[in-house]
């Protein structure tokens, strides 16, 4: 039994093995992009919105409102980042019910990549908001002795994000596979339904935590930090 789709090699391209994780990620990317293009291709103010457009507007509006509730401001870049995180993870998790489809989020490489993205995005958003010195100064708070602990906390946040998402999705898939062998008629269905719920919740948690991390890094700086950032620029 393969615990991760990384081990399933679909084809090789230029000596690089393209595994099921990457291919399935492409499938999800194509699905999300295709649906978006189909729905938004005829989007004009003079055309009344149909039910699909309204559905997309509701989804995007919910994501935006959640981000605004957390960050207390409207930020388009944060919407693009965390909204894409949520949509990618939730679609991946929901597609675990498709027979033969290995969810990319069941791969630790995928969750690690997403966590690394968040880890990189947090300082980038923080630097973009506070400046380099203003952001680095946050590692010295409340005192300089807290620098190693802040660095460890930053790294452990990424690791916890990756392990949490991977563990939940992979374990759900593994448990469903095991129960399929033991009791093939009832429990796998229940576990799949539970897996759907868990997948949506995990996608929500991942996106919310990423939003919280980025928002904490981009929160308005104290007067001293703002002054330093102004001097730096």
């Amino acid at each position: 039994m393969e615990l991760t789709p990384d081990d399933t090699i679909i084809f090789t391209l230029g000596g690089i093995a393209i595994n099921a994780t990457i291919v399935n990620t492409w499938v999800i990317m194509a699905l999300l992009t295709g649906v978006s293009v189909l729905i938004t291709r005829n989007l004009r103010p003079d055309v009344p919105p149909n039910r699909w457009r309204t559905t997309l507007e509701v989804i995007v509006g919910l994501i935006q409102s959640q981000i605004e509730e957390i960050s207390q401001r409207r930020d388009g870049r944060l919407l693009y980042f965390t909204g894409t995180l949520f949509l990618f993870i939730v679609v991946s998790n929901l597609l675990t019910v498709v027979p033969g489809f290995d969810s990319p989020t069941a791969s630790l490489s995928t969750t690690a990549a997403l966590s690394l993205s968040v880890l990189v995005a947090v300082p980038m958003f923080g630097i973009g908001s506070r400046g380099v010195r203003g952001y680095l100064r946050t590692y010295l708070e409340p005192s300089v002795f807290m620098l190693p602990f802040n660095i460890i906390g930053e790294v452990s946040r990424g690791i916890s994000l990756a392990i949490r998402l991977y563990g939940n999705i992979m374990s759900g898939a593994v448990i469903a596979a095991i129960l399929l062998g033991v009791a093939p008629f009832f429990f796998p269905v229940v576990m799949d339904m539970l897996g759907l719920l868990t997948g949506v919740i995990q996608a929500y948690i991942f996106a919310i935590l990423a939003t919280v991390y980025i928002s904490s890094a981009t929160a308005p700086a104290p007067p001293d930090d703002a002054k330093n950032a102004k001097e730096q620029t």
């Binding site: 994780t21 990457i22 995007v60 990549a113 993205s117």
Partner: peptide
Amino acid sequence: TVGAQIVNFLVLIWLLKRFL
């Protein structure tokens, strides 16, 4: 795979930003 997924994720961000 991690690198590829990071690239895929960045591409997906751009695609969804452009089309969604």
